[in-house]
Each structure stands twice: as C-alpha cells, then as structure tokens.
Simulated scan of single mutants.
Amino acid sequence: MKAEIAAVLLAAGALAAPSDKAPRKAAAACSSAVTLDASTNVFSKYKLHANSFYRKEVEAAVAAISDSSLKASASKVADVGSFLWLDTIANIAKFDEAVADLPCENILGLVIYDLPGRDCAAKASNGELKYNEISKYKSSYIDPIVAKLKANPNSAFALIIEPDSLPNLVTNADLQTCKDSKSAYEEGVAYALKSLNLPNVVMYIDAGHGGWLGWDANLKPGAEQLAKVYKNAGSPKQVRGIATNIAGWNAWDLSPGEFSTASDAKYNACQNEKLYIQKFGAALKTAGHPNHAIVDTGRNAVTGLREEWGNWCNVDGAGFGVRPTSSTGEELADAFVWGKPGGESDGTSDTGATRYDSFCGKSDAYKPSPEAGEWNQAYFEMLLKNAKPAF
C-alpha cells in the first residue's frame, strides 16, 4: 500500500474506532422506525457495531494474555465493529443479544451464510444443509431471520449475502458438488434477497475478490451471474451492491499488486481490491446490478505472505487491517469493514478431520488451527502484533 494512502487510512481508521466509554443505548430505546436509503452510503451515517458475540470472544482472549502491553492492545479490539456470522440455523439465536445493546447510531452487520451445499468447492466451510434442502433453507433459516429483522424496525442492519456462493458458480462450475448446488444457490440467494428486502436493511451480495472474479475472463460472466440472481429476486431496492475480500487477504490499493510478477499476471488487471471494485463495478453496471461495495480489511495488513491468489486458509503472518470506516477515498467503496472476525479459524489443519481441506495444510497456512469458526488464541495474538495501524 502506498505510504500516503496508508497514512490517510490510518487516520480514518483511528477516527472510526468506537469508544468503550460511550453510553450504550438499548435498541428498544430508539424512538422511530429506521428507513435506509440504499441509493446512498448508509455507512456515512451509521457506525458498524461492535457486536456482543465478538466482544465476548475478544474479552476471553484478553484474559488469557499475560503480557501487560499486549493485553492492553488486545482489549481495544473488542471495540472494533465487525459482522456477526449467522452461519447455522442454531446461530440465528446470536441475533437477540447482539441487537439488545445496539445504539441507535450504529448499524449491526450480519452475514447470511447457510445455503444448501454451502461452499461447494471447499471442505472446511461446508454447511449443515444438503444441496437439495432448499425448502429447509427458506423456512428454517431465512424466514426466522426475516421475522427477527421485522421485529426490530427501529434498528439498522447491513447484510452480507452468502459468501463464496455465486462466485463458485462462475469459476468452479465443473465440480460435481457445485453442479449439484447451482440451482439451490441461485434460488436460495434470490429468495434471501427478496425476503430480506426490508426498510431497515441494506444488502451487499458477496462477489469474492480481485484474485477470483477479477481475472479478465471472469469479470463479465461474474457480473452477469450476480445480475441474473438479483433480477430473479425482482431487483430488490435494498440491495446496494457487493461485498469483496470477505475473510480475504487482498490489499486495498497495493501497487504493483501482490501477484504482479506472477507468470499469469497479464490475465488479471485487478491486482488489488480498489482496481477490482472499479473494473467489476463497471461490469455490474453494464449487467444491470447495483455496484457499490464494502471491502473486508479485517486481516489484510500484511502482504506477500501467500504463494498464490487462491490460498485462503489461516494465512500465516497476517495482521489486523484498517478499522471500519466510510472514508475510503473511492466513490464506489462505501466502507472498509471487518467481515471476518479476526481470531476465528478458517479451517482445521488436522489432516484426519472430516472437514480438513488441503488449503489449510499449505505451507503458507498457520498451524495448528482448529475447525472453521473456532477460536485460535495464538492466531489472534499474531493478528494483533502485526496490525497496521497498530492498536
């Protein structure tokens, strides 16, 4: 990342960090119903909420640290806004506590992530529903979330819709698992978009990252795949655009790009997420899909760690990145967010585990690591030590 841009982002991130001294106001105390205008950047008005679930994870991690200096830095992570992953039917229950302490000026980030045959190209993040359980996805997963959102009309919500799903249909269509999941992905995402199209909600559909749909050959079909599902849902007005780099590692504006010297670099003009948003955003506009974006900067502080673009599991040497802020310097980028809660594992390094994925055993993956979603204390401390800007 260029030094002058880094300085701007550091300042923006510092300004955006929420204070633990601010009075916490219950959502019930908010006096009027929220109406979010998805034709505007809602992050310029609302601050991403530091949800109670991640706060408790971080507080437990802080208690396990003996070094006083590191302990003090770690405690500040609890005050950073991040998205809450509703990644199973059971985890919908996390919603209630998270919304209970949501101040009126904050927006609660939720990741909608439980499609049938979820993550058809990976083992570590396979979901609980089989590829043919679309009816259960609708009735037991999406519908209960809709009910909770409707029951909290005075609160604002930002949703990331189904990470990795539609991008997998573009680039992994030859895998049998993805062939099996294709119809459920398209129908499921469309149902989610249509059902979650509520006044107090703004939605961003996951679009992978620059090292995935950013390849020259993937831009047009990627945009058309997202637009197809968006239009099948009736072009819901609360869809603002896309989410990129979710749980990812790509730099925002590193130039030259991290893989610019690779032999195949000439086939990918999106060498950072800023370029990706610009180029994919243009393709989305042509395809008839909203094209503003939020970008995950939760773990992208350190570059040059991965052997190739596609290495996604617990990258060794990573660090916490820029704090959530709407000051991005790019018109199409609404906000930098923390999409993936730093410290929660991407997948297990145990080769004997049912959900072991070979990407979690690569030389650039941190070991040992527990199952996806489980806390990894050592990894959290590494992210903290390598944070830019530092805590």
Rank of each mutant, 00 (worst) to 15 (best):
A3W: 14
A7K: 15
G13L: 08
A38W: 08
A38N: 11
H49M: 12
E57T: 12
E59I: 04
A64T: 09
K71A: 11
G81E: 03
G81C: 10
S82C: 12
L86D: 03
A90L: 08
A90D: 15
G109L: 12
G109Q: 11
S125F: 04
K130L: 10
Y141N: 05
V146D: 02
A151I: 10
S155P: 11
E162P: 10
D174N: 15
T177M: 02
K179F: 00
V189S: 04
L198F: 10
V202Q: 13
I205R: 01
A207E: 08
A207M: 04
W212R: 11
Q225N: 07
Q225V: 11
L226Q: 07
Y230G: 02
A233T: 09
Q238S: 12
N245E: 05
N250V: 01
E258F: 13
Y267R: 07
C270G: 11
Y276M: 05
K279H: 08
H289I: 01
H292I: 00
H292F: 12
H292Y: 12
H292A: 06
G304I: 13
N314M: 03
R323Q: 08
P324M: 02
P324D: 03
T328W: 10
A333V: 15
W338A: 00
T351S: 12
T351L: 01
G352E: 09
T354Q: 13
D357L: 03
A365V: 05
A365R: 01
M382T: 10
K385R: 14
N386A: 07
A390Q: 08
